[in-house]
Design a binder for these strands. Sequence first.
DNA 1: TAGTGGTCTAGACCACAAA
DNA 2: TTGTGGTCTAGACCACTAT
Lengths: 233, 233
Amino acid sequence: MRYGELADLIKTDIDRGIYIKTGKLPTEEKLMEKYGVTRYCVRHAVDILVGAGRIIPIQGSGMFVRENTHHNCIDIDVTRDLYEEFKNRETTTKIVIFQLTAADLQLAEKMECKVGTSVYHIKLQRIVDDEYLYIEESYYNKDFVTEITPEFAEKSLYNYIKNELGVNVGFSDKMIYCEKLNKENSELLMLNKDDPALVLESSSFLSNGQKFAFSKKYFNYKIAKLFHLSSIK
Amino acid sequence: MRYGELADLIKTDIDRGIYIKTGKLPTEEKLMEKYGVTRYCVRHAVDILVGAGRIIPIQGSGMFVRENTHHNCIDIDVTRDLYEEFKNRETTTKIVIFQLTAADLQLAEKMECKVGTSVYHIKLQRIVDDEYLYIEESYYNKDFVTEITPEFAEKSLYNYIKNELGVNVGFSDKMIYCEKLNKENSELLMLNKDDPALVLESSSFLSNGQKFAFSKKYFNYKIAKLFHLSSIK
DNA sequence: TAGTGGTCTAGACCACAAA
DNA sequence: TTGTGGTCTAGACCACTAT
């Protein structure tokens, strides 16, 4: 078994709550026995969950599980695929803009591509549990993301791009700030002009470093909270 | 050499720009030779920088360096010690509140401590390059953070707590959202009431899981941007 | 002192990218 | 095909926690 798979198994167990009583994982040795793997595999699997903030290992004491107490909050690292994140909730998507355009100077700069490159431009509203949670305006370089349809844009574009189009997603930069809503966007969020918005800008790159997407999400400041867990060295 | 030390060395080299020409690190083998360490050490050191988003390793191709293009932005993971982050810039701190109080019910809940526990309560303004960048209101459980003085509160409390008091800092939770400023805080940021604020709430825990600090930073929405780099598995 | 996680060695072979 | 990073083995010993 690969350590990535083991990490998924352990994460599933944690989410199922089977370690809630003790508050900690079995020892490394017991995990080795339980899954029939070597220590290498166990440690690397655990490392993944440590990086995600789900496990706090304490030398000499054990590997403590952090139950996720942040309900109704959005993990910064999953904002790439909020459709998936909200799959167990009542989610509606309304597409406001869906078009293929040629990049002008400004867009070309933002997308790090040549002027004139074909770029998908999508804008949508996401309503979760009857609340207007966020609006998203995104751009995809057609050289890499060759074919998008509105049907997929409504759902998980990330999954589609990665699995159907076989795009090699590598890494992403995120920027978080706050600004006053303009009239148009405020109406799309059922808020008032000049109300605050939590803005999350995201640039996505292929594993070879080429930028293939840029998106800007405007979260409803009344309900949206992002969270981020981290261990400190 | 420990892999943590090696990570620091490599990071320093990256920051000094010695890999700017090639855009990538030497191969693992060359790093092994250069520093006289084993592959274990090199890989673990690199892992740390990969986790921090500074290196993108591509199998078969090399370890590419991501130059940090986010000037004037604040890495989410360094918000624990912004004094250190801004040490090369003109930074002024004004303390608004500095007191030792007994936790009431509300504060006890926030600090996950007993009612009546002694808690430091500090509120300050941070002015960077003549701009009112943020205000911070923080609470420290005196059971763990035994002695704080205003002099240290003005500077790097994180360093002081970790190195002078020997507190075993383990991990932290962060929550990011957006709200309208009240009158008092808006004045401390030289903004207007009901202007937006980017809020970063942070809970800090000892490595044994006990909560020792809670803080809330209100960033000036006109100038503050947070960023976060991540690789995607 | 016993048990737990952390660091490290010295290898082997695999998977992927570029030439 | 070659060079690169990724996965893995089978150990050893260290550092810290709890008792």
